[in-house]
Design a binder for these strands. Structure first.
Lengths: 199, 199
DNA sequence: CGTAAATGTTAGGGTCGGCTAAATTGATCC
DNA sequence: GGATCAATTTAGCCGACCCTAACATTTACG
């Protein structure tokens, strides 16, 4: 992880990130060399997965219980996740029946920090004629999520690639029960799939 | 409200409270004269009732949905209340069916800041032979709440005062379906009642 | 291989909210 | 009515966290 990328993600200046990294390094959560980027230590990984778990459990709760749309819940969960007592997160998780994934399909780590592997393959990596099953989608852009939902590109959906434009990389996918949709490469990369069309 | 009392309630020094009050006074939320104590303005009252609403809705949610005991939820709600987006509080309120009170019986203000009156009368204000209905209890001491629940002294319970000790003020109440309990004056003051034994 | 551009860090400064210690005010009691 | 005491405020400090501007390092390219 580079300082600048972190800064952009957090919406602060790189200067601020330098200070944070030094701090986290002192606390043993990241390995960090000046000018050399940062990497989570095992402890840091565990702490991070704890936060990820809170975030994803909350997203599930917001969609399944409070009926928020999946395009809103990333931002909402982000606001809530740091103030919720751990016992409350645990209780919500139980209430939901220990869900395996967040609404966007990402796996929820368990309390020990174990987490299921995520598929590497995206729609952009498919060839014409391939069949696949949607597993997860990037959750950062509400407008994109809205669009994907309208076109049936949600976790669990089964699709077939009907065309791949060799010039600009545009992909046309037919979603079972939801018609055909053309996707630019950037969009196609936001949807992760697996080749198994199980169930 | 005096500076020192606020400081004690908040667990900070009076010096810190002086600064806060000046701030709030500049924002028009309290009327404040140096050395003269502070009082909420109409705006401050509205803002405060908004926070009270969040707090009590959350308490209801924690007991009714997440199955926490009523002795824990004040502290938990306190941690959560400032980070929850307003829309989430609204959604929880709807989910619960717009409850009228928190688990301890205190009325929940509506979004416009209207709030039902709370009874002034406590068990300590009753005489031998009086019948009354428990309306609300102080929520600050978990051990007290545990005790009250065991003895059936919860909102809605109907009771009769069987003795009042004229020397030390000890009161013995018989709770319908839950036997008799002796209460010291300080404890008796923590339970508010109304004389109507309706319903 | 050396220099320019990109990237990252340090220095220094501002705000916020807490603290302690000292000064001030108000209240009480003789 | 003055002295003392409690309550409160002011003054000054600290740490967290952000910023900008200046400096340092790495990377990339001719």
């Amino acid at each position: 992880m580079r300082t600048g990328d972190i800064a952009q993600r957090l919406g602060v200046t790189p200067a601020s990130v330098s200070g944070m990294l030094k701090h986290l390094s002192r606390e043993g959560l990241v390995n960090y060399r000046e000018y050399g980027g940062a990497l989570l230590t095992a402890d840091g990984e565990r702490a991070a997965l704890g936060v990820v778990r809170r975030h994803r459990v909350l997203e599930r709760f917001l969609t399944d219980v409070l009926q928020f749309g999946w395009e809103q819940v990333d931002a909402l969960a982000h606001q809530m996740e740091h103030a919720l007592p751990e016992v409350v997160v645990d209780a919500i998780e139980r209430l939901l029946g220990d869900p395996a994934t967040c609404p966007h399909g990402h796996p929820i780590p368990d309390k020990e920090g174990r987490v299921a592997a995520e598929p590497r393959l995206t729609i952009g990596g498919l060839a014409a004629g391939d069949r696949a099953c949607v597993r997860e989608v990037d959750e950062f852009d509400p407008a994109l999520l809205d669009f994907l939902q309208q076109r049936g590109l949600v976790p669990g959906a089964v699709l077939r690639v009907s065309q791949v434009n060799p010039i600009d990389g545009t992909v046309v996918v037919e979603v079972v029960d939801a018609g055909a949709t053309a996707l630019a490469p950037a969009t196609a990369k936001a949807v992760r799939v697996s080749r198994e069309v199980a169930e």
